[in-house]
């Protein structure tokens, strides 16, 4: 019955709006990381517009759920989602990466709603563990979500953290891996193979779920399952496509950190709105 309550229509609309925000902001900035932002849109939409307990008017609410963007280069998707949630004006998105803007190239605490200054890869899961431990100490029931990149699986600290989270039985922690298959230099399986990824997390005593990261229902159901798991942290491996939604960006490693020009984006956005 619960499935019936998921407002997929509204969530899909948000996803389209956030995709267009991302393209417009990186085109305006003339730099940034569109590929890994576009792959994570449905994940953030599921969290911020459905699953998470948060209030954009009270970014410091002690009982809020926390979202840690460990793959901080996906700042555009985080900023767009925060703006569309009401943390700050959507019009501010066009200041991304510009001097004196709050919207830095990688997220930091200038921006309300940012929980951790991700960017240097490998640290976010550790920080999320710290927040989850604090919740347990304070007997607070907030949950902590960490979005990791698949390239980030190369970092040793990710696995230090994976060991620690199961040692501390952090069932209030959910990690989500944006498995878009591409890192800066190329395909993950060529640069540094990380498969079998699910087995790796399983071997670290995590509860492992795999979903289509663009299927809102699958993502949300996995988030619910994670919440019901006791004594173990959950990782959701979300299978995605880098550059999702823009045909020429999909599966092209060049768009890890390159912005399309404004004219192209204008046409793309027009096309997306019509769809």
């Amino acid at each position: 019955m619960e499935q019936e309550q998921i407002p997929t229509g509204m969530l899909l609309q948000k996803a389209v709006k956030i995709r267009t925000d991302i393209l417009e902001m990186v085109a305006e900035a003339k730099s940034g990381h569109p590929g890994g932002s576009l792959s994570a849109v449905e994940i953030l939409v599921s969290l911020f517009f459905y699953k998470m307990r948060h209030d954009p008017k009270l970014p410091d609410w002690p009982d809020r759920d926390r979202f840690v963007l460990s793959k901080g280069h996906a700042a555009p998707v985080l900023f767009a989602t925060l703006a569309e949630s009401g943390y700050f004006p959507v019009s501010e998105l066009k200041t991304l990466r510009k001097l004196n803007s709050r919207l830095q190239g990688h997220p930091d605490f200038r921006v309300p709603g940012v929980e951790f200054p991700g960017g240097s890869l490998g640290i976010g899961l550790s920080a999320a563990i710290g927040m989850a431990l604090a919740a347990k100490l304070d007997k607070n029931d907030y949950r902590v979500y960490a979005l990791l990149g698949d390239g980030e699986m190369d970092e040793g600290e990710t696995w230090e953290a994976a060991m620690a989270a199961s040692k501390f039985k952090l069932d209030n922690l959910t990690a989500i891996v944006d498995r878009n298959g591409i890192q800066q230099d190329g395909l993950t399986e060529q640069i540094m193979p990380i498969e079998p990824l699910g087995y790796k997390w399983k071997a670290f005593n995590w509860h492992v779920l795999e979903v289509d990261g663009f299927d809102l229902r699958q993502v949300i159901e996995a988030l619910e399952k994670a919440e019901n798991m006791r004594n173990r942290p959950t990782v959701i491996i979300a299978h995605t496509v880098k550059g999702k939604g823009v045909s020429f960006m999909e599966w092209d490693p060049a768009y890890h950190g390159k912005a399309p020009d404004k004219d192209t984006v204008r046409k793309l956005v027009e096309h997306m709105r019509l769809e």
């Binding site: 002690p62 926390r66 840690v68 929980e115 951790f116 490998g122 640290i123 976010g124 899961l125 550790s126 920080a127 999320a128 563990i129 710290g130 927040m131 989850a132 431990l133 604090a134 919740a135 100490l137 304070d138 040793g156 600290e157 230090e160 953290a161 060991m163 620690a164 501390f168």
Partner: peptide, 23 residues
């Protein structure tokens, strides 16, 4: 008290999260 084992980078990251949550 949290003993994280021989994993200093993780220890610093966890400390950051604890501090962000008021510890």
């Amino acid at each position: 008290f949290f003993n994280v084992g021989i994993a200093e980078a993780n220890m610093i990251g966890i400390a950051a999260g604890l501090a962000l949550a008021g510890k």
